[in-house]
Structure formats: structure tokens, C-alpha cells
Design a protein around this nucleic acid. Structure first.
Lengths: 193, 193
DNA sequence: GATCAAAACGGACTGCGGTCCGCTTCTATT
DNA sequence: AATAGAAGCGGACCGCAGTCCGTTTTGATC
């Protein structure tokens, strides 16, 4: 989490733990949208400035809270067992990627939404870039030769947390139906190649 | 714009014109993101409460500013000449819809982003619902029988202003390349039917 | 023209994310 | 143990969207 060689000062480390613990508690109680930076500071017993020094912004805090789940997911599709991980045919990996991503969004989506940096560069956070590259690679392997980069962009758009949560929570679409639609979409994209 | 039968009071009408004029000026000068409700009130010479009474929220104001362009676009794909309007084969209409929508986003996208109600129901504003229904209808006509509703959702996701603007402004993707990718995507989706 | 209720007005106020800067606490060095 | 300066701290402060409510304007009725 902190890649730097120089160690963290003891008070800083203690405050970070305090803040993360308090943040998880607050999210448990009020949901991610109900967490405010002021309340968090108060609950953790530190000043508001400390919260922002640690995490930069509200979105940064949410990204930190997500990073475990994110790293786990990344590990699975990059190094884990097929069909999500390497070893399966690309179309099957694409299908598995979407299915797993939908499940992931249903579990962590609220946090993921809160972690979206408002502004343009929400698509340039490392995790999003990695997902995009992964999709692009699978498309290439599956024989999609016409602009796989943009095609990966389109597929990423389909899997956005905001849309998925909206479909499930507002329109009561069953997750399995989302997965089926994803299978259909990605099959047609690849088969047309 | 105001569908009610009961007419608007004179002062209210005058202030609305004042506000719309001032808003357009400010957006000209500072961009949509640079417009603040306080500045707008000041520029128009009214109180801040009046601004919110008129438009409900910042997003509501932006939607009002967009409504002309939106109505024009809607008229074109519903009643205008083919291939965008009725008369052409569905695949051609789908292709034309995406192409025109990309062009529309490049012209009005900043406003459209500012008009997005933060929260879940951004997809349930009338214009978004109409676009979605239109896509779904074209998909059905083109022979897509497996869950056209969700397929239309996916295609809508691909055309979101935020992504398109990001691709063009940050990654310097040429609009024509976006259009080509859309053609490819939608052709494959339909041909797989 | 006087009257009056409803509609609209305006600006002080709240709560939020985020910044700033003088003060405190740590740790490396001697 | 003394010291120095870097790292961290805290909370007053800012600008913003949005709310509230006492005051003013409007236009239908008489």
C-alpha cells in the first residue's frame, strides 16, 4: 500500500489505521455515500487536515479502501485459474471477465462509485487502465483486428459500476440476466471478427 | 418548455429570461464547469433562491439550456430524413444514430455532463429514456431477439458523453475513428442475430 | 382603486469537500 | 540528553450547492 522505501512515522501509521478502521465502521453504519470527511475525522479522533493529508481526497480514501478487493480481482484474472485466468480460449476468458466483474460490482460497486474521481480522468486510474488493457489483449487474441483499443473501451463502458448498479437496483434486473447479455454481446463482437 | 396551462407570473417570466441569458453568457466566458449558481444569480441581478426556484438544481439549469439542442436531435432521429430518421434499414439507422450522437456530444457534451444529475437516476431522465427506447426498437427491427432491452443499455453506455469526450480530449481519438468503431460494434451485434 | 391570498423573491444559513498555515511531535545526529 | 529540522497535525477558513423563511410582488375579485 505504501511503496516508499522511507518508513512512515509512527504517529502517521497509527492515524492511518485509526482512520481506515473508522471509515469501515462508518460505511458499515451509513453506507459509502453517507460518509463525510468531517465525521470521519471526528470518529477517528484526528483533525480534518490529517484525513486529507493521508488520502488526498474523498475519492482517494475510497480507492484505498477498495485496494484489497481490487488487487484480489486483478490477481485472479491475470494469474488465477481459467477460465478467468490464462489458459482458456480468449472468448471464454472475456465471458468470465464480464461475469466476475458484474459479481464484483454487486459487492463493491457502491465503494467503486464513491471512488470515481469526478472529472475526466476517472478512466485513467491504474485499475481502469489495467482492465482496459486486459480486455484489449483478449480481443486481439480472439482475432479482433479492427481497433481493439476502442472496442475495449466500449466493453469497459458496458461494465461500468454505475450502469450495472442502476440496472440491478432500480430496474431489478437479475445479475444472471446481465451476465447473459454480456455473453451475447461479447460473443457477437468476437465472432464477427 | 413550460407545459402548464396556468400562465407564469410576469416577474417570474422576466427573471427566467434574465437567468437564461446570463447563464449562456457565463458559459461562453467560463465554460459550463466554471458556472456557479451564486455568480449566475449575481449576474442576472436576482437572489440565489430564485435561481433554485426556477431550475431546481444546477443540473436542472443545464438541462434547460440543453433542451433546444436535445429536442432538435430527437426530432431528427424520430421524424427526420433517413438514414437517421425512419425509412432506412435498421442497421443503417443504428449506425447513423451513433454517428450523429458522437457529433452531438462533441458539440454539447460539456453541457450534457454538467446536466447529469449525480446519483443513480441519471439514466432515467426523459431524453435518456427516449434514446434507450429508440435503440431498443431499432435492435428489434434488426432481428436482435435476445434481450434487446439490455443490449440497448449496453449500446447507450458506449455513447455516454463522458467516455466520448475523454477519448477525444485526453486520448486525441479522431471522431471519425469513434464512428468507425461504433459501426463495427453495431454491425457485429446485429449480424450475430 | 382597494383588498387579499397565492406566488415569487432574496439573501442569510447549512453542510460539504478541500486548503492553509502556525504549532506539535517525532527521529536522526551528536 | 540535547538539538534541529523535517514530517505530521489540527482546525479555522474558503467556495460551492442547496434550503429556509420573512418580505414583496402580482393579478384576480369586488
Amino acid at each position: 500500500m505504501r511503496p516508499g522505501l522511507e518508513p512512515e512515522r509512527r504517529d502517521a501509521a497509527r492515524n492511518r489505521e485509526l482512520l481506515l478502521r473508522a471509515a469501515r465502521e462508518l460505511i458499515e453504519e451509513c453506507g459509502a455515500d453517507g460518509l463525510t470527511m468531517g465525521t470521519l475525522a471526528q470518529r477517528a479522533g484526528v483533525g480534518k487536515g490529517t484525513v486529507f493529508r493521508r488520502f488526498g481526497s474523498r475519492a482517494g480514501l475510497m480507492m484505498t479502501l477498495l485496494s484489497d478487493a481490487e488487487a484480489h480481482f486483478q490477481g485472479r484474472f491475470m494469474f488465477g485459474p481459467p477460465p478467468l485466468g490464462p489458459g482458456a480460449p480468449p472468448l471464454e476468458r472475456l465471458i468470465a471477465f464480464g461475469e466476475e466483474r458484474i459479481a464484483w460490482v454487486l459487492e463493491f460497486g457502491e465503494l467503486a462509485r464513491a471512488a470515481d474521481v469526478s472529472a475526466y480522468n476517472r478512466f485513467d486510474v491504474p485499475a481502469a487502465v489495467l482492465w482496459h488493457r486486459h480486455l484489449e489483449m483478449l480481443l486481439r487474441e480472439a482475432g479482433v483486428t479492427t481497433d481493439p483499443w476502442l472496442m475495449a473501451t466500449s466493453l469497459s463502458a458496458v461494465l461500468e459500476p454505475e450502469r450495472i448498479l442502476h440496472a440491478v437496483r432500480v430496474h431489478h434486473i437479475a445479475p444472471e440476466r446481465l451476465a447473459a447479455s454480456w455473453r451475447e454481446l461479447v460473443s457477437r463482437v468476437v465472432r464477427g471478427a
